[in-house]
Design a protein around this nucleic acid. Structure first.
Length: 287
DNA sequence: TCCCAGGTCCTGA
DNA sequence: TCAGGACATGGG
């Protein structure tokens, strides 16, 4: 590790590709710069990342932020082992090869809950826009970077206090009242939400689905992307298409696709889902 | 104009 | 249980 000014440089980083990580649909606050680097917001930090082969440079952070980076990017996990265990047929092998640098980020539960509630019946560019609008309107100004202003993800306090009309102005559409209601509940149930990490998958799923706006798919995304429940295989339109094209018949129901995949990929189901999602979307499979 | 998007909720069999 | 329609918004 090299430290220089506001930069930290890591060398010989394995199984790490910023294009794969930020474009596999797990996160919505990272944007690609013209020079190929990505800038995004993690908690109250604005971070820029550039990569040259196995060298990864984090800009606009101090040494004190390194533990945050290490946790967020899941740097302690061996993706080599995951890939080895997952490599059970030619299809998944191809998907892994295609998205070899994917990592499942360690994202905040609250932000992930709201972000995936917004994802319902929505497109990724719109989801990103709504989240940016909410952050600009209800988050705190962090800093300017590269001529652009950045704001933190809004707290539950701010969103629960916001009039629904103001949330609607952020283009949240029919999800606006659900967001406000979830924020109000979060204030009282914060401890329970941050304890989902320690709960069983079934208990976590059942709890999350008690929220209006969180159904099976969104709940599974929250479990996978923020609470380290890697044994789930969320099924969305892309995953449905790629699975029906490559693994199961066209009339297979989402519930059965999920079960098929979880039986096949076991405790690595979530990683398989990410490799397949990226593979399907980048190659337009089933579309 | 119509269709659809990392779905969820509600309704009626 | 389960299929079918509604739901805001905007791009193709």
């Amino acid at each position: 590790m090299k430290k220089e000014g506001n930069k930290i440089t890591l060398q010989n980083v394995k199984d790490f590709n910023i294009n794969h990580i930020f474009d596999c649909g797990q996160c919505f606050r990272w944007n690609k710069e013209e020079d190929g680097s990505y800038t995004g917001v993690v908690k109250n930090k604005v971070i820029n990342i550039r990569q040259d082969g196995s060298t990864v440079e984090f800009d606009n952070i101090s040494m004190d932020d390194y533990p945050l980076i290490e946790k967020y990017f899941d740097l302690d996990t061996s993706y080599e082992d995951i890939k080895k265990n997952l490599d059970t047929d030619e299809i998944i092998a191809e998907a892994i090869k295609f998205g070899e640098g994917i990592r499942i980020l360690n994202q905040d539960e609250w932000e992930t809950m709201i972000s995936f509630m917004i994802s319902a019946n929505n497109r990724i560019p719109m989801i990103k826009r709504v989240i940016e609008n909410l952050s600009t309107s209800f988050g705190d100004f962090i800093c300017s970077y590269g001529g652009k202003d950045y704001y933190s993800f809004p707290t539950a306090e701010r969103l629960s206090a916001a009039p629904v009309e103001k949330i609607l102005e952020c283009k949240a559409g029919f999800r606006a009242p659900r967001i406000k209601a979830a924020a109000a509940r979060f204030l009282n149930e914060k401890d329970q939400i941050y304890n989902i990490k320690n709960m069983s998958y079934d208990d976590g799923l059942a709890y999350l689905k008690t929220y209006s706006g969180i159904g099976d798919k969104v709940a599974n995304c929250i479990l996978l992307f923020s609470t380290r429940h890697f044994d789930t295989f969320p099924v969305d339109v892309w995953i449905r298409r790629v699975m029906q094209t490559l693994y199961v018949s066209k009339d297979t129901k989402d519930k059965d696709i999920k079960k098929f995949a979880e039986d096949k990929f076991g405790k690595y189901s979530g990683f398989a889902q990410q490799y397949l999602f990226y593979y399907a979307r980048e190659n337009g499979i089933g579309k």
